[in-house]
């Protein structure tokens, strides 16, 4: 893939792509990579969600891309401005792994599954269907989302590449 056509999405970051460009985020562990796609206008969006809810935020100015409940509405807004129709958006998600296993499961340690649950709750509230997901497990993922096709490629160390 030509590097120029790939928009990088950092940790606790979100971005959109159109015109056949791709969105990519690397090293998803317990974070969730959530993508939205409007097939007709070919507007794609991706958020790298780190934490489930902004309720726990103790920052003075919150980074809205970091929390599931704030990142998804912001992503939709950005996509709408780029020409997407919110009624046509379809979601895919990957990540939310539990990287390390511990006998004492505090809430912090369960952050991956909680991120996934929270993303799903927000999507269902906004009535956005989830087309496919590759979440959970105990391994990291790198994902790339193509705005021409809406295909999400997921790479992991153990399982190589797969498409959803």
């Amino acid at each position: 893939m030509n590097q120029d056509n790939v928009v990088k999405v950092g940790m606790a970051d979100l971005n959109i792509a159109l015109g056949g460009h791709s969105l990519k985020t690397t090293g998803l562990g317990s974070c969730v990579g959530l993508t939205l796609f409007d097939e007709k206008s070919k507007v794609a969006g991706m958020a790298h969600v780190m934490l489930p809810s902004s309720d726990i935020a103790r920052e003075s100015s919150i980074n809205i891309a970091k929390y599931a409940d704030t990142a998804i509405p912001e992503l939709i807004e950005r996509m709408k401005q780029a020409g997407a129709n919110t009624g046509r958006l379809l979601a895919k998600m990957a990540g939310g792994a539990q990287m390390f296993a511990f006998s004492s499961q505090s809430d912090t340690m369960r952050i991956g599954p909680r991120n996934v649950e929270s993303c799903k709750a927000v999507l269902s509230q906004l009535k956005i269907p989830i087309l496919a997901e590759d979440t959970g497990g105990n391994y990291g993922r790198t994902i790339e989302f193509n705005s021409a096709t809406g295909i999400l490629v997921i790479r992991s160390v153990q399982f190589g590449a797969k498409e959803i």
Partner: peptide, 12 residues
């Protein structure tokens, strides 16, 4: 695993 996936765990 990938360093990014592993280390993000310690940043929560």
């Amino acid at each position: 695993d990938m360093a990014g996936a592993i280390l993000s765990y310690g940043l929560m």
